[in-house]
Design a protein around this nucleic acid. Sequence first.
DNA 1: GATGAATGAGCATTCATTCAT
DNA 2: GATGAATGAATGCTCATTCAT
Lengths: 213, 213, 213, 213
Amino acid sequence: MAAVKNKARIPKQKRGIETKEKIIKAAMALFAETGYHKTNALEIAARAKVATGTFYSYFNNKKELLIEIVRQFYKRTSERVLLNYEPKIQKNKADNYKEGEKLVHFMVQALYLSHTIPPALHKEFLAMKLLDKEIGEITSAEERNITSYMISMMQKYKDFIRIDDFEAAAILLHSIADEVIHQVRIFGMDIDNKRILKELEDMICRYLLQPAS
Amino acid sequence: MAAVKNKARIPKQKRGIETKEKIIKAAMALFAETGYHKTNALEIAARAKVATGTFYSYFNNKKELLIEIVRQFYKRTSERVLLNYEPKIQKNKADNYKEGEKLVHFMVQALYLSHTIPPALHKEFLAMKLLDKEIGEITSAEERNITSYMISMMQKYKDFIRIDDFEAAAILLHSIADEVIHQVRIFGMDIDNKRILKELEDMICRYLLQPAS
Amino acid sequence: MAAVKNKARIPKQKRGIETKEKIIKAAMALFAETGYHKTNALEIAARAKVATGTFYSYFNNKKELLIEIVRQFYKRTSERVLLNYEPKIQKNKADNYKEGEKLVHFMVQALYLSHTIPPALHKEFLAMKLLDKEIGEITSAEERNITSYMISMMQKYKDFIRIDDFEAAAILLHSIADEVIHQVRIFGMDIDNKRILKELEDMICRYLLQPAS
Amino acid sequence: MAAVKNKARIPKQKRGIETKEKIIKAAMALFAETGYHKTNALEIAARAKVATGTFYSYFNNKKELLIEIVRQFYKRTSERVLLNYEPKIQKNKADNYKEGEKLVHFMVQALYLSHTIPPALHKEFLAMKLLDKEIGEITSAEERNITSYMISMMQKYKDFIRIDDFEAAAILLHSIADEVIHQVRIFGMDIDNKRILKELEDMICRYLLQPAS
DNA sequence: GATGAATGAGCATTCATTCAT
DNA sequence: GATGAATGAATGCTCATTCAT
């Protein structure tokens, strides 16, 4: 309702960019340590060794800062997952299942490796995705990106694939792979993470791939 | 001086129990409508048509109220999932896979049906599970319960099962089924929910069950 | 300004008197333990094993209860100091100073012995005497009583006395004796209390009594 | 998590120091007018023409403010009492008692003059010394200072002194002189203050000084 | 641009007191 | 008389945000 005051400075000079980066670094550290809700602007400014006023000249408010952080994270993650070189898959090999397994392994690994921020911070992101509409939308857009990419991959390798509903499959696969990786990375479950990831890959393969004839 | 003042009244009389219930109802409605963080004690009391002081004579603070709500939810969910009658599975049937599918369908349905609180409220629970240690622990305990139950089911029907690592499988299955159901219930994804759930069941079956010979 | 609601019940029956006494006992204990200001009606009622409502049917409020306690204390103290039998003083003895010393010793002892409530509670009384007008007045009245008594004693034994201004002397003596006894009883000073009391008596004697000729 | 959040701002700039001083002034006025317990942070801020938040950026809470005020008071008092020039006392005069009287008079006057804050405020200090442990400790430390000074004075003029136990005497003298001065300044007793102070000095002299041979 | 002092609405919490049972 | 649940004004304190220097 209220007109958004868009006073946030967009730094052009080197010093300004560095200051903004200092603030983001400090905020990430604090969000990871004590959580987004329990961190306040004063603390962020203090940690960044910057005056409170400076904070507000770069970000209109705390949430905008979070959005910036989340955006940066997803941008980097996307790049890592989507732009990664594909493995060498041989379409005409005798055993398509084996080749498919390679592909699945590659994708799960890519997803796993893309989650490189501190678990505690990631936890905050996931929570904020649920709690905040804006963050939720950013996340959804990102997920749609990844899902589209997966559909295109299925189409490319459709001879390997046993299921029909590519869209549902993509959503399902992304959803579960992401969740399992979160579980593994964030909660660091008691039992060996490798065991879980192995089962995950097996599950995806059994579901997705044409069985070896 | 003592770290925690445990003044919360434990109502013995009918009136007290009703009042407490009124507060819980009001809080659930508000948490669902505006979220836990954006709801305050005053609003809860007002919605429950109760004085602020009354709120604080039943709960030491807002979080304790949330914990009570979460506990109640999990207790009911557990009862529904765990105590549900099992479907009639015939162990000696010719087609074990078909019977297995019935079992999987039954379990997914049970899990689906157990999530009967308003999606918005559930969203809050999931977020708080990530944000708050105490809530996180309650949730973990609950998850361990369900995982144990699943392991025992696998042992009971081990002739149907193709995988070896029951523990990893149980964790994996619980994790993904829960996640997909949340996605479906909370985000009410664009594409037909039935399509997703159908794929989920298919995936679980392919992964879990001995293929039809 | 506001008309004082004088609803406080004056118990006639044994049960009522006992209940009131229970409340007073509980309050004294709590005032001593945690202080008047940090004690609330609920706690007093709880300690007295009585309902909150019952508290308010015996006392209009917390301060009235304090006043009752202070009154009781001064009544008992007065009785002990004033009604105490006097020592046998021989007016015609050769050495008046020696006899005077006996008298002073007796009075200091009487004052000392009259302070029989727990030091922590006494501390509260002294503070409330400073902070609260009503309590201050009760205390002042009491002090005037004691001062008068001291003047009459000086008159009775005027042959022993070296000073002229009986009134100023009585006020001074009461004031300092009381203070020193408080110091000794309440703060339990590091150095031996007996040394302090001995010096006090010596001081009073030197000041008050005709030197031995 | 940490027991005490030490956020209190320590003003470096002129403006900050002035603001802090404004708050202290306002608080002293209000404590004197209505007492410490009946004054709240809001009122102090309002009187100082400052926002509530400003109050809390200089003091963590009301008690910390009181402590600061008490500290300032004792610092000033000490300086006045201890650093005051001594009167010219002639050790070899014929009449030591006369010289001693001068000394006692000087000390009582110094003590009297050192109590320059409004009586009502002083009353609050005395009450808080009894009610609050921290304030009590500050006061005790101060009293030990003064007592030490008195002992050193007695040693310096030991030829004038009739008593042996310097330590007990110092404690006793400080205690009673302080008390009588409080009585006089705070309660402004009915009878002429000069009469009381005169008797006080006489008493101290008789007790402390070698009689004129 | 940067600073950090100042703001004040907002929220959590307490407790003296009342009153229906 | 006794009970204890309910009341709600009062108060302490926080923190996002502004703005004079």
